[in-house]
Nucleic acid binder design. Structure first.
Lengths: 215, 215
DNA sequence: ACCTGAACACCGTTCAAGT
DNA sequence: ACCTGAACACCGTTCAAGT
């Protein structure tokens, strides 16, 4: 006789939910199905959809939780790297690695305001590192945004469906077809694109703002 | 006495809808409200939601139409530019300009397969231009994707809400706050970030693959 | 404070009926 | 072929009732 815990009504002696558990469950759903609904999330947590509203502000609130899950997984340690360009590269690489682990979350996070403490601290530190390297505040955000835009774009590339290109009948594009065929497999390809772009962007920035001293 | 044309039932003598009109109306809705629903789209076109299904495959089909609207607005002319790096820069600039004119569409297009004839022809041409410049097919897609990822990221930056950063109480991030304050206004800022990033990426690529001949 | 169950408005989609 | 009107499943959200 399996004892199924029946919840009849009223407040439980100990809360069944908390924001952390909700966030984890939501991330799991998105990883698996590419999206989530409140009923599905509630089912995964063994509660009613309405219960979620005691902990988060509706669907939008759950998306906030997803953003927190992602932010918390980022690693700010590389920012202590001695060379500022390598520090930035290291942090953005970790940034992108987290997205790589959860590619299907990216499209859900493309529009919103950043309030994550961890992310804000990381950016604050990067601005400081840039200032130390002689880069003025007016340019700091531009530089960081250039790199970030590239990271976000690359993360979306990871979330993209397997077949990204579909040349319709009647349209001939032999050069493109050949180039597509010459590409490595998806996952490896995305990694390579990211690594090349990131390295190059930062090398370029380093060159422009802090040319390495001549021996 | 305004004569309101009442549609009672049955097939009209001349079709009320076509894909072009649906696409235009959808784009207008997204530009204005940031999203669309089939009922709202139908209302804007003066028909019933079910009528749309005679022309497009549901909501996903309308998103395809949005993509076509965007693709058709892109200008492939810059690809005939003499220098290949300037050709690519010109095309991607036009690519991004279209997104700049319709920033709120971008989040709707982040996941999907590219079938647009215009886009495919443009990429085909770019691969050819790269090949002419001595860049092998295996590397062509990597290069194009690096640049495209940056363009998409920048386009999303345009779609972002006015306040992108919100430093919560208790968290102090003085350097970041100062850098944010030193930024130019949103629209101009995004333009600047894009232009700098694009120019730098391509200059870098040009340097690496086809160093300009020494005078 | 925190959960349930019922209820509501709204959305995407299907389909028979009509020309 | 192309439109309507009715119908259905499903989703997000609210709220009174219960502890």
């Amino acid at each position: 006789m399996t004892q199924i815990t029946q919840r009849r009504a009223g407040r439980p002696r100990k809360a069944l939910l908390d924001r952390q558990r909700i966030g984890e469950a939501a991330l799991e759903l998105v990883d698996r199905y590419g999206d989530f609904t409140l009923p599905a999330l509630a089912r995964a947590l063994g509660v009613q959809p309405a219960s979620l509203y005691h902990h988060v502000d509706g669907r939008g609130g759950v998306i906030e939780l997803l953003r927190e899950q992602i932010s918390d997984a980022m690693d700010p340690a590389p920012l202590d790297e001695e060379r500022w360009d390598l520090a930035l590269a290291g942090f953005f690489r970790s940034y992108r690695d987290v997205f790589a682990a959860h590619p299907r979350v990216v499209p859900l996070l493309t529009t919103a305001t950043i309030r994550s403490e961890r992310v804000i601290r990381a950016y604050d530190k990067m601005v400081i590192r840039l200032a130390d390297a002689g880069i003025p505040a007016e340019q700091a955000m531009t530089i960081l945004t250039v790199v970030e835009n590239f990271v976000i774009g690359s993360a979306l590339d990871l979330a993209a469906p397997e077949v990204m290109w579909e040349i319709p009948e009647g349209v001939d594009a032999p050069a493109l077809a050949a180039a597509l065929a010459a590409q490595p497999a998806t996952a490896k390809r995305a990694d390579e694109v990211f690594e090349q772009g990131l390295t190059r962007l930062l090398a370029m920035l380093a060159e422009e703002f802090a040319p390495r001293d001549p021996e």
